[in-house]
Computed example of a mutant assay.
Amino acid sequence: MTDTLHFAAGDGARVAYRLDGPEDRPVLMLSNSIATTFHMWDGQVAELAKSFRVLRYDFRGHGGSDAPAGAYSLDRLGRDVLELLDFLGIDRVHFLGLSLGGFVGQWLGIHAPERIERLILSNTSPHLGPASYFDGQIRSVLAARDLSATADMFMHNWFPASMLAGRNETVEQFHAAILTMSPQGLAGCFASVRDADLRRPISLITAPTLVIGGVDDKVTLASHSQAIAAAIPGAELVLLPGVHLLNVERPAEFMDAVMGFLGVEQER
């Protein structure tokens, strides 16, 4: 295992990343949700690292990465991934993206198919609207004295009522992490979602693709997952009984779907 490392993206922004697992294994790259860091995957890395060289990173504006001023585009977030792979000398990866990470995964499948071996798109959408909603979120995070209201909103979007009732250490950790984030970084990534519309070009994705959705997801609806799977030729679809952060809420079922698609038999 390695500690957090950094590289400079093409525009000079420093992006944090981490590698786990044997150097001689195929690379599996993980891309997380807005308002989280690569620690969102902590519960999966030990198992994944038995079979893969696991590459995680923080979006610009999040965690250990820089938070440049201004709106971030999905193109810029996608190029951050490609520039990181170039920096590390990695030609091709399996790519697992959840939520905003899934937007990036779709972008990569469209614009850099030669870099993607197998693609997993979890709890994501090709387009979310209306734009006015994201404009409101941007104004709110930039004007707020703290991010407690934003953190509360994300908790209700990410987790089921059963996890929000009473004290829950996992929920509290995710909530606390948002309070330390850069308002500019959150606003920049909100803008990338606001401006993204991949509904037409995702039909160009040729990588073998698994789409995972949550039956009770309030943000990226199950119907969004169904639409992605219908648009990408040959894509597989798995709907799990859960909300948004399925790797956290439903870790066993989530890992069964991921490892099965990647051709790895899990130890029981």
Rank of each mutant, 00 (worst) to 15 (best):
P160N: 04
H175E: 04
A149P: 05
G166H: 11
L204C: 06
E172K: 03
R167N: 01
G166T: 08
F174S: 02
V193T: 06
M155P: 09
Q184W: 11
Q173A: 05
L204Y: 11
G166V: 03
R167T: 06
A151M: 03
R167G: 03
F159L: 10
R194T: 06
L147Y: 08
I212E: 02
I212T: 12
T180N: 09
S203A: 15
C189K: 03
Q184D: 14
A187Q: 09
K218E: 07
T170M: 06
G188Q: 09
T209F: 04
R167W: 13
V219L: 15
P201S: 08
T170R: 07
L164Q: 01
L142P: 11
A207K: 06
A177G: 06
R199M: 00
S162I: 03
R200S: 14
D217F: 08
T220G: 11
R194M: 04
N157I: 08
T180R: 15
I212L: 07
A176D: 11
P183C: 10
R199D: 01
L164D: 01
V193H: 00
T206F: 01
A144Y: 13
I202S: 11
D197L: 06
P208E: 13
A191M: 03
A196T: 15
D152S: 12
I178N: 00
F174N: 10
A144F: 14
M153H: 13
M163E: 05
G213A: 09
D217H: 08
I205M: 09
S162V: 14
R145F: 08
W158V: 06
T220V: 08
D217G: 12
A191K: 03
I178A: 07
T220H: 08
L147G: 05
A191N: 05
A176G: 04
N168W: 03
V219C: 03
D195Q: 02
R167I: 00
P160Y: 04
F174R: 04
A176L: 06
A207P: 05
W158R: 01
L164E: 01
A177R: 15
N168E: 02
R199S: 15
V211H: 13
M181P: 07
A207D: 05
K218F: 01
A196D: 01
R200V: 15
A191V: 00
T170Y: 02
G213F: 10
P201N: 13
S203G: 15
I202R: 10
Q184C: 12
S162Q: 10
P208D: 14
N168F: 06
Q173E: 07
R200T: 14
A187N: 05
D146G: 05
